[in-house]
Amino acid sequence: MNLVNILFWFLSALTLFSALMVIISKNPVHSVLWLVLVFFAISGHYVLLNAQFLAIVNLIVYAGAIMVLFLFVIMLLNLNKETEQKKNIWIKVAGTIAGGCFLLSVCNVVYNAQTGSKEIANKAILMGKGSIGLIGNLGKELFTNYVVPFEISSVLFLSAMVGAVIIGKKN
């Protein structure tokens, strides 16, 4: 059990516990804070996988920008109290059973790929090595082979900005 394994299990437990707390918490503000913790744990996973650029971008974009936007909206709408109406208990049970069935069926597929058809048997992940996650290599690839999608994403941002302003303004 080396350090990488210990960190993997710790970060996985932290991710899953915080994700559960996101959907269990009654107060939306607590949900947002737990979600920030999920993003920190996932960034830790990215660092373990040596995807350093994505780790930082995940922190800046998700934990920094998107979650603050969520908090702003919650504060703006004054939702920081437990206002959610009681949902029918059967809908909760049915939703949990549906999600659990989804999890079981996809886990079965992965288990088959591992033991039956052996597509992912003995495939290992390179931990903490390799240079594809560094910003120099990613930037070179982004601005040579993927420059058209990059430019299209700027159009996407422009349209999202215009859309948000048009939807958000009064009448």
Binding site: Q85, A98, I125
Partner: peptide, 25 residues
């Protein structure tokens, strides 16, 4: 690290998201 650990972790995380979408209002 074998790849299936990460697959199962991502699957459980995704399922938690699905359950949240189905159960919260």
């Amino acid at each position: 690290m074998p790849v299936q650990y990460y697959i199962y972790l991502a699957l459980i995380l995704f399922s938690i998201g699905v359950i949240g979408v189905l159960t919260r209002r």
